[in-house]
Amino acid sequence: MARTTYDHPGEQSAPDPIRLLAIRDTPLSLDEVFRAVGDDAAGGTALFVGTVRNHDSGADVDALGYSCHPTAEAEMRRVAEKVVAQFPVRALAAVHRVGDLAVGDLAVVVAVSCPHRGEAFEACRKLIDDLKHEVPIWKHQKFSDGTEEWVGAC
């Protein structure tokens, strides 16, 4: 018979689930983010990796640079706290790169672990979507035809 109540402490949010938040000008590590969200009570861990692609809106991208507002890390924390308030997060991590990046480089890595896989998927999606829309990080794309474009919050 399947359980229908979740009264075990492991089914709830951890007391301090935000384990890693950073904006860095150095290469990002999947292993670091994955290790940060390890939790014995988590039955599901979802990880999202954003990479620099070689095209955007029909144009070839050669490279790009990310820059951020001085409040970006504080805004990242606010977004993370919102996710923690909405889902039973056991552990959460998010790192974003700034500076010049090449095609294929990791731009952002986020991960969330929760008691169950569905919650982990939903929380991870909410985290990356809100991070892209609410954290003041901007992308400067350089196209193969010599044109450039600034893109709003990423």
Rank of each mutant, 00 (worst) to 15 (best):
A63T: 10
L47D: 10
T51V: 14
T45I: 07
P15S: 11
I23K: 10
G43L: 09
D40H: 14
L47P: 03
P17Y: 03
D25K: 13
T51D: 11
D31H: 06
G50F: 03
I18L: 03
D40M: 10
A36N: 10
D31M: 02
A22Q: 07
A41Y: 06
A14H: 10
S13P: 09
E32H: 00
A63I: 00
G65Y: 00
L20A: 03
I23R: 09
D25T: 12
L64I: 01
I18W: 04
R53C: 09
G65I: 00
H55A: 05
A36Q: 07
A36Y: 05
I18P: 07
V52K: 05
F48V: 11
F48D: 08
D31P: 00
G44H: 03
N54H: 10
F48A: 10
D56Q: 10
D40T: 14
F48R: 07
A41G: 06
A59Y: 13
V37K: 12
I23A: 12
T45P: 05
T45M: 09
D60M: 05
A36I: 01
E32V: 04
S29R: 09
G58A: 03
L28E: 11
S57K: 12
D60S: 13
D60V: 12
L64R: 02
G38C: 10
G43V: 08
A41W: 04
F34I: 14
R19E: 13
R24L: 15
G50D: 02
L28A: 08
D56M: 02
R53A: 07
D62M: 03
T51R: 14
D60Y: 05
P15I: 00
S29L: 09
L64Y: 00
G44R: 02
L30Q: 15
L64C: 01
L28D: 09
V52P: 05
H55K: 05
S57M: 08
G58M: 04
L64H: 00
A46G: 05
R35H: 06
V52Y: 05
G50Q: 01
F34A: 15
A46R: 02
V37L: 13
V49Q: 13
N54E: 10
I23V: 15
T26K: 12
D16Q: 15
D25C: 08
G44F: 02
V33G: 11
P15H: 06
G38V: 04
